[in-house]
Each structure stands twice: as C-alpha cells, then as structure tokens.
C-alpha cells in the first residue's frame, strides 16, 4: 500500500508532537511493506504539492492535534483549498490531544467523519488518542514510551487501510477515568505537576508565574 501522509499540525516540524507520533506510526507501516509520502501543513510552501497528492492518490491519512474541540485553523485553511474527490479515495485520520480521556476527543472525531464526506472521500476511520502533551516536554526513553504504541498501529493501518478494527478502538484507552483515578490525578496536578510545569517554564525562559494575568486581575 502507498499512502499520502499529511501532518496537519500548525507547529513547525521540529517541535511537532504529531510528527513524533507519525515517525513511530510510519516505522510500523514501512515494516509491514507499505510506502508513503509526507507533507507538512505548517509549511505553506508544501501546500501545492500536498494538494496534487490529495488529488492523485487513493489512500490518504491526515494526522492532527485537537485544537478547541476540532481541527486547527491552519489545517482548515488548507482543506478549504482542496477540490473534493469523487468517492474514489479513502481518507483516514490520526487525532491526538493532550487530555487523557477519550471522551475529550469525540467531538473532533465526529467532525472528521463528516469532513471525509465533504472532501468527497470514503471515511477510513480515526485513530483517537490523548495524553500526548508530554511528548514536547520529554526526550529519549520517556518520549519513546509515549510514542512507541503508534508503531503497532502503523502496521495495522498498512494491513487494513483503515482504523475500524477493535484493536484501533481499544487504542484510545479509557473513555473517562473512574472517580478515584480522577481524584488521584487532581492530587498529582496540585502536588507534583505544577512544580514540573514551573521547572519547564524556567527552562523555557519564563520570568513571570504561570498563572500571571498580564491584562489585569488577581492571580489564579
């Protein structure tokens, strides 16, 4: 199988979590014998070639981060320029986000199903998974732990050409966490995560508190 892969993240490739995910996913795909060509929507100079690839291939996959419950504005701007296909191509998606619970991504997933039809394509399903914010803040083995599971999903996509299998459905993880897990997460955020975020912010050069209100008002 040959697939057109589009990284729909507006973030430049160097810092793109979606790109790290795709790297693992494409490793699995190629191990299964598939080939691909990849385009970065963050780079407007690639849009013309990406449009041509969309028109002339029958297996297309767009990977994207969830932005305010749906696709990022920059990706929408690109998609608005496409000429819809005539039902002769399959369009699948990898939807990733920061929130860990699967339920957080369902509104975006529902749009992607509609979008495939609007672009004149058959819908090939969406691989949905959250809890990916940490990719940007980690390196090496810790980052690998987050992205590695996508390798197997690349193999599945290579074999089946879609994300409708039970294996892909389970990949999302829990739809919502049980009460006690949520309680534990809340405690972790209050006691540990805030310190970690503050450390990351100092490394990024922040000189103001993370809950600063630059346009007025008291702190959180």
């Amino acid at each position: 199988m040959h697939a057109v892969i589009m990284n729909g993240s507006p973030r430049v490739r160097k810092h793109s979590n979606t790109d790290r995910i795709l790297a693992r996913f494409l490793q699995g795909m190629t191990e299964d014998g598939s080939t691909f060509e990849q385009y970065e929507i963050s780079d407007r100079k690639q849009w013309e070639r990406a449009r041509t690839a969309f028109q002339h291939n029958d297996r297309i996959l767009i990977a994207l981060p969830l932005y305010v419950e749906n696709i990022p504005g920059l990706l929408m701007e690109f998609l608005e320029t496409l000429i819809p296909r005539g039902g002769d191509a399959t369009l699948s998606f990898i939807l990733q986000g920061g929130f860990a619970e699967g339920a957080q991504l369902r509104c975006g997933e529902a749009y992607l199903e509609m979008l495939a039809g609007r672009l004149g394509c058959r819908y090939g399903g969406t691989l949905v998974k959250g809890d990916n914010f940490g990719i940007r803040l980690t390196e090496g083995k810790e980052q690998e732990r987050i992205t590695a599971p996508y390798r197997e999903m690349g193999r599945v996509y290579s074999r089946e050409g879609s994300f409708f299998s039970e294996e892909c459905r389970k990949f999302t993880g829990p739809e919502t966490f049980p009460f006690f897990t949520r309680l534990l997460i809340s405690v972790v955020f209050r006691m540990i995560a805030r310190k970690r975020f503050a450390r990351a912010a100092r490394a990024w050069g922040a000189t103001r508190p993370l809950d600063d209100r630059p346009y007025g008002g008291r702190g959180v």
């Binding site: 963050s42 504005g73 600063d212």
Partner: peptide
Amino acid sequence: PCMGCNHCWLRTPGI
C-alpha cells in the same frame, strides 16, 4: 492561526 507553540503557557504566561 495559532501555531501551538505553547509560549502563552510556558514562556510568557498569558501573552
């Protein structure tokens, strides 16, 4: 469009 740089959270909070 938003570039998702996260500077408004981590580098220049709120800006």
